[in-house]
Design a protein around this nucleic acid. Structure first.
Lengths: 169, 169
DNA sequence: TAAAGTATCTCAATCATTGAGAGATACTAG
DNA sequence: CTAGTATCTCTCAATGATTGAGATACTTTA
């Protein structure tokens, strides 16, 4: 239990479903995800910023549902809290490395649409396959009803986090 | 509108507890957490790296259980994938800003222990209070049994992610 | 004690980020 | 239609974080 590498070590034992437990678990998970993203970045000769941008572009691009439109430099600027120059530099790197394409919008020619390149999509899928397997391994230990609970929780959590966007700034 | 509008938009409707759903929800949550961390960083005149370091130091410092010892520059280097120079610079910034203290280990005088300063702890607690409230709001919508399921899932997920540290590198 | 190993720091070179401003395109009112 | 204003992206010099080889100090092993 108290053994060093044990992943479940050091949860507050007094209240195993309390706020503290959630804080610790969520913070750790976030850290692990960021570490994996960092590794991917280094392997691809990118920066963490670039990977975050890539993910945002991927989500917008493959979720036409979400915002309707593909990602643009302006949206990326807000989403990642970058300055205009940083966005341009980041997109330059991503485009030069073949991960994305810039496409002028036909309707509003000031706007640039960002598309994930298919080859890069395959690279990312390959790299993150172990992560997908891990997620599946965890999922496999729960019943359909339990998974439904988890999905509902994650969705509720995301909803709360989105509300926080305006609230405390 | 980044991930804007309805937070539950664009989940794969065909398999509401499938891998894709988890991937989308976890990725989004990660993005939101990182955005919040970025905002905290900017407000404190820090960088995202500094905040990640701060969190790692906090976790090690307040969880003597986990690794036994407080954080050190060396462990930080591995955990955040930084070079030695970057760690030193990052710690210089954090120490100069009063967030941490460097303390030479009495036993092994090569080692530096990193401690979270109490005043900084209070600053962080204040800043992240809304996040805590959000987490509590989400928790409040589930029964104790359901919360137990969620905690178990998060713990399983973390365990898998830790395994991934050696496995696929 | 000497040699090898480990933890941290130093510093010049490199390169991402900042932030003001330019250029191009769209909208709106007269 | 035209002028004026707003929006989107990009440019570029200055700033400053990160790199990475090497220095320094300490510990352990032979």
């Amino acid at each position: 239990m108290s053994g060093s590498g044990a992943p479940t070590a050091s949860l507050p034992a007094d209240d195993p479903t309390g706020l503290q437990t959630f804080a610790v678990l969520l913070r750790r998970m976030n850290g692990e995800f960021n570490r994996i993203a960092q590794e991917f970045a280094q392997e691809q000769g990118l920066h963490l910023t670039d990977v975050q941008a890539l993910i945002a572009i991927l989500d917008a691009d493959s979720d036409p549902d979400a915002g309707g439109e593909p990602m643009t430099p302006g949206r990326l600027r807000k989403q990642l809290n970058l300055t205009s120059g940083a966005v341009t530099a980041c997109l330059d790197r991503l485009e030069r490395a073949g991960h994305i394409r810039r496409v002028r919008d036909a309707g509003d020619r000031r706007v640039v649409h960002l598309h994930y390149a298919d080859t890069a999509r395959a690279v990312a899928r390959d790299y993150f396959r172990p992560l997908a397997r891990s997620t599946d391994a965890a999922r496999g230990r729960f019943s359909p009803d339990e998974l439904d609970v988890v999905v509902r929780f994650l969705a509720e959590m995301n909803a709360e986090l989105v509300l926080l966007r305006r609230g405390s700034a």
